[in-house]
Computed example of a mutant assay.
Amino acid sequence: MGAVWHPECFCCNACKRPITDYEFSMQGNQPYHKSCYKELYHPRCDVCKQFIPTNSFGLIEYRAHPFWLQKYCPSHEHDGTPRCCSCERMEPREAQYISLDDGRKLCLECLDSAIMDTNECHPLHLDILEFYEGLNMKVKQQIPLLLVERQALNVAMEGEKNGIHHHLPETRGLCLSEEQTVSTILRRPIFGFGNRVVEMMTEPYKLIRRCEVTAILVLYGLPRLLTGSILAHEMMHAWLRLNGYSTLRPEVEEGICQVLAHMWLDSEIFSGSGSHIASSSSSSSSSTSSKKGTRSQFERKLGDFFKHQIESDTSAAYGDGFRVGNEAVLRYGLRQTLDHIKLTGSFPY
């Protein structure tokens, strides 16, 4: 510091008490007790709220979520700390996430807009259909939409004869083409002690093949924006099948489906009239917007996160397919891109 101090004048810049220890810390030209400095400047874990420990080299080492920037001790990646199945944030020690009956965890912020049963999803289903109609891509067949548990989704996937491409740790949505019986969630589950599901009412639903698509299944318990993006993705699979598109390569079919999911999220986040960004009916738009209510700041942030997931996906089919497909749509427009896909089976360049 280049100065001489009276012992009683050499004080900590934080607590203002004299520093009598042989070792102290500096921030700029200001001295601190080591304990005061640590309290002020040493990062704390957002999960356990403790000081993040130093590694074997004496350096502070932590992990951070790439979108939410939640900082946490490296040990939490291996100690069973739950993550929200929607936003992927780790469960802080002072919070208690909701435990769904299939083992998934849901944070309270995501629970706030979560869709829990098939009836709750009906308005969103209509919203997606109107979104497609606004793009001049009306889905002319009535396709059942069912919210299901993870196990029912996995069973339905095994019952499909057509190849299904997926890369996430779990499948969240399916567009079915085979006749089978699916267990759907009839009523919103009831949560009891410990934020756990204590009552879940389901019923079997027999799928009958009247066209190329028998049903769309979506995993229950996800926020409205995530449920909607999954539904927009699966609806594009249905639209392709119903409009005579031949079997496409995974990167083309999944890519264009991700483009539609991304477009729907865009319309929900940035349009004052919700998903009716593509619709010319202002009265219809304002009516739907009022039904949705004002979106919370967290829900808008959540929508940005779901877009980020699509944009940063590293898989060949979903990630690379989306980026090539999105570039084609931005350059040539959606209709010309779809016409080119139908003619050649690939994206235009």
Rank of each mutant, 00 (worst) to 15 (best):
K16N: 09
I164E: 05
R241L: 02
R210A: 07
S183W: 13
T54Q: 13
G103L: 05
H122F: 13
K307N: 04
K34H: 06
P250H: 05
I310W: 00
I60E: 03
L186S: 06
L231C: 05
K301I: 05
S346N: 13
P189H: 04
C36W: 08
S35M: 04
L126T: 10
L176V: 02
E8N: 08
G303Q: 06
H122N: 10
D21C: 05
V155D: 14
Q96G: 04
A156S: 15
E158R: 09
S99M: 12
H166D: 07
I19G: 04
T118L: 11
R249M: 11
E23Y: 13
P189Y: 03
K105I: 04
H122W: 09
S75R: 13
L242G: 00
N136A: 03
T20M: 13
D101E: 14
P7V: 14
V218R: 07
V329H: 02
A278R: 01
A232E: 13
Y132C: 00
G173I: 08
L260D: 02
L186N: 03
K38D: 14
L153S: 02
R295S: 11
H65D: 14
E268F: 09
F24Y: 13
L174T: 00
P169I: 07
R300W: 10
M1I: 10
G228P: 05
A14W: 06
Y97G: 11
L343P: 00
C45W: 09
A215C: 08
L100Y: 05
S312Y: 08
K38F: 07
E253S: 09
I256C: 00
P223S: 11
D46K: 07
F305S: 02
S286H: 10
L176Y: 03
G192L: 08
L217F: 07
D313W: 01
S275P: 09
S315I: 01
P189W: 03
I128N: 01
D313V: 01
Y62V: 03
P169D: 12
G173F: 11
S75Y: 11
L147S: 06
L145S: 03
E149S: 15
W68C: 14
C11A: 09
Y349E: 13
F24L: 11
L129C: 01
A114D: 10
K105M: 15
M90S: 06
T171A: 15
I310F: 01
L338E: 00
R300S: 12
L40H: 02
S315L: 02
Q336G: 00
G303S: 11
M236T: 00
F51I: 06
Y22V: 14
E158L: 13
Q27E: 10
L334I: 00
E251V: 09
C11Q: 12
T81N: 03
E130K: 07
L124P: 00
Y97A: 14
M263E: 12
L265R: 07
L174G: 01
L242A: 00
R188I: 09
Y318M: 14
E158F: 08
E94P: 02
R188Q: 15
R104E: 08
K71P: 07
I208S: 07
D79N: 10
D21E: 15
N326Q: 06
G159C: 09
L222V: 14
L219A: 03
G221S: 08
R187W: 06
E178G: 03
